[in-house]
Amino acid sequence: MSEFLPIGEWADQAVNFLLENDSGTFGALGTFVGSLTELVEQALMFIPSWVLAVVLTALAFRRVGWRFALFCAAAVVVIIGTGFWNATMATLALVISATLISLMVGVPLGIWTAKSRLAAYFVRPSLDFMQTMPAFVYLIPAAMLFGLGKVPGVLATVIFAMPPVVRLTSLGIRQVNSEQLEAGVTFGCTPWQLLFKVQIPGALPSIMAGINQTIMMALSMVIIASMVGAGGLGNDVLTSISRLDIGLGFESGLAVVLLAIIVDRMTESFGVARPTKA
């Protein structure tokens, strides 16, 4: 059967067009993303592993409880003991920078879609697209536009991980109790005051849930992103696959799982610690 809709060709042409005509913007974006990631990674590497371990355990104790603190301490020992500390920090740096960028774009976008029907009309299908398109597919244009390395990895991760925070921010803002909004207006809030004093605080539990999901999705994506040379634990996973090295695969996989559990529980604890019900 001959194909009469060459969509793939169009996509190809679109990326090529971008590549040929607008490298300035991509250059600037690449520099920004690159230096942000570099900065985060440098910071994580600069702190000695044992200091980070102590801080993490203490935080786990305060926010969650002694059981979880114990788990964190054990997890750190395992990661250091298997020699994956540096790779784990590199992965964490990717996750943090991808998440930061996702929030910088995603939260305002979520607020905007909550307030404007027109915005919602365009943004919602885009989010569906971003979320359901197989994650690998983003890597190709990202690599073409930004070359190999951390930058395309982080940007592909941003695209993949941003939808939850946009959706849940929008949902949270729309669900703020209408009498609370009226109270805000009644006492003389300007639209901006209403946003910052009533709507965002009211939507915060929902926004936090969105952030948590975004982080978890970023974590799964940065592993895949090592295919374009983003580095970190993903590299070890890839190597283990290509060499059929069961030991390496298990150890690096374990580090990913431990990191995921710690990150999940910690961010969750920040989300639910606030009293949210009126």
Binding site: E179, A183, F187, G188, C189
Partner: peptide, 22 residues
Amino acid sequence: LVALRRRDMAMVFQSFALLPHL
């Protein structure tokens, strides 16, 4: 209108409408 609401009018609501985060 904003000035009038701040200066002259206040409202009390059936469901209290307090802000839970404050």
